[in-house]
Nucleic acid binder design. Structure first.
Lengths: 347, 347
DNA sequence: TCCCCCATTGATAGCGCTTCCAATGACCGT
DNA sequence: ACGGTCATTGGAAGCGCTATCAATGGGGGA
């Protein structure tokens, strides 16, 4: 660790015997500088280990080339795929993605938006549509493109891509109903707004079928993990021993449910059918394979990033499409395969 | 989206009828400003929705309050816990963590380090000790504290906290050997340097026991996922049908292995024992529960962050300890429970 | 009562870079 | 040979903020 300050543009200029402006140009628009100087400058850059100061450059040009992204979690593969897609579009275009993880906390999200704005990003991508009034206000007056993803409820701030979680929850119930299930449980961990909508969809569809949900909803305030799936299933079984299917708010809980069934000797899907949410990679590997609601997380990320580029490059022109519902699809697998007959109890 | 520029310090000053310096002070050192002015300024800040420009402030003060963190992946819970711990220390101290995910690519890592340095972070935390020569050079001359985490091999650049993956790999083998296993397989996905060391430890320990590893190593160049665990187990079984135990380079593969056993009707641990790595949350939920090598990812993150704060606050003084081996521990669970007797084949 | 000290506020000078415009000289056509 | 054009290069100003030091005035001690 040498204590000497990092080299600046001026240092490079001095060493190459040119003016600072020329160095700046040689780096950003090499074709505007004669070959001779360019080489001399490149050499000086190497020699001095010069790395442009992004803060100074951003300040002077009022172009930060930063896009702020707020995610509520990094614990599962969902946001990894999503972020990956965003970066794959933005990085090659010369933009840096600044990610803040707010761990499903509205207060952290408010702070994160504020922090992010301090960096003057050129656009912002936030997950969900349920920001606090203060957050909404900040975003609305941010003076930059804002994309809300993952959800399509309500009136978007600006651009919006997502899916209808209420419909997805209802569809999961429908899937099970059509397979003959009537006692359908719902398990949900610390419920973010989207999980809550899925729950609402479950309730609505159950009601539409005239089915009671009493004793069939297992909820925990803790963040979800696999073990919780088992715990919540325990609770349900204690109240409704003949529950025949479980729809969980995410795949972790689905996996935990599957394990708990194995532990108890309940056959899946014969005794209990399971539907998860997100369609993470382990769904196809599990035994039996897990039915899950698949969502287009990569597409959401890609679209958000591409729309932003379009706006920035088009100097503010709005893209023709500002709102997209990417839908969802139920990947029907082993955990909801048609069963020959009710095999347990009361059959 | 209003197009008008964001308010600046000067705008606030004008509105409050004070000088810009006073506004700056009122925001950063409120107790240095009289109550009356402070109130007037606060009001102006609110009214104008003023958010300090972090870039300008960092440039002027040469304090960015940024700590750069490079992670090789976000796909599993490992780096989530780690990042969470880092943020929990750094954020309250007024530092912003800038995370770059390099997806296990050395080239991306090189670029990420360069990018990060453009932001003039006050410290850097990188995962692993296997940076490219160019990366090492950049980090060594970065003129800031650098913490390498997750591994302890070789000569650290600066600070270092991690564990000995070679020893961990060997310990996993020892655990299985002592339970009577002799045909111990190793499964590994796209191998980052740490996974490679675990593999080396496996090889060393097998050799120490005089055991052959022929046909017992399943490797894939693809990034790991749960399904791959099954595929690799298939390969092993094709070559060594009487394999009795499997050590995987991570828990995803372990889970996939478990599922594959279930699919094939192989009993775990009676027919095949399994040891994973990382001890992710699902290990305790699986049936049987999965034995795994537990690592102190939160502690590594916390220590890295705390050491950085210590150095920054102590104006460069080195902490007494600059290198820590946090070790590892094998969480012995159901998947390696002692079996009564060899139950399959050749028994 | 006078002076010193401290608390409060402001003026000035950059941080490292880019934008904008001017200056230079080579080359061209006529 | 001369004005004009283009390709290069440099100078000056300033992005929004903070560090530094100066200026102001009130209060307390001698």
């Amino acid at each position: 660790m040498n204590k000497k300050q990092r080299a600046t543009l001026a240092d490079v200029a001095r060493r190459a015997g040119v003016s600072p402006v020329t160095v700046s140009r040689a780096i950003r628009h090499p074709d505007m500088v004669s070959e001779e100087l360019r080489e001399r400058i490149d050499e000086a850059v190497k020699k001095l280990n010069y790395i442009p100061n992004h803060l100074a450059s951003a300040l002077a040009s009022t172009r930060t080339h930063i896009v702020g992204v707020i995610v509520p979690s990094l614990t599962n593969g969902v946001f990894d795929d999503y972020l990956g897609a965003i970066q794959d579009v933005l990085n090659p275009a010369g933009f840096q993605v600044l990610v803040l993880n707010v761990r499903y906390s509205e207060i952290e999200e408010e702070k994160a938006i504020q922090t992010l704005m301090g960096y003057h990003p050129e656009a912002m991508i936030v997950a969900g549509v349920d920001q606090t009034p203060r957050s909404l206000d900040l975003l609305r007056h941010a003076g930059m493109p804002v994309v809300q993803t993952m959800d399509v409820s309500g009136a978007p701030i600006d651009l919006n891509i997502g899916l209808d979680h209420e419909a997805a929850g209802a569809a999961a119930v429908r899937h099970l109903y059509e397979l003959g299930h009537r006692k359908i449980a719902h398990l949900t961990a610390r419920a973010d707004p989207r999980a809550r909508r899925r729950h609402a969809g479950y309730q609505r569809q159950m009601a539409a079928y005239g089915l009671s949900t009493e004793g069939l909803v297992g909820a925990s305030p803790r963040p979800s993990d696999v073990a919780m799936g088992g715990e919540l299933l325990d609770e349900i079984l204690a109240q409704v021993p003949d529950v025949s299917a479980v729809f969980t708010c995410n795949d972790d809980l689905a996996l935990g449910t599957l394990f708990e069934c194995q532990r108890r000797g309940l056959r899946v899907p014969d005794d209990i059918a399971i539907v998860g949410f997100n369609d993470l990679d382990f769904c196809v590997a599990a035994v039996p394979t897990l039915t899950s609601v698949s969502i287009e997380r990569q597409q959401m990320g890609r679209w958000a990033a591409e729309s932003i580029l379009e706006i920035i490059r088009g100097s503010g022109k709005r893209p023709k499409q500002t709102r997209v519902d990417v839908g969802f699809s139920i990947k029907a697998r082993g955990s909801t395969a048609a069963t020959r007959k009710p095999a347990r109890k009361k059959g």
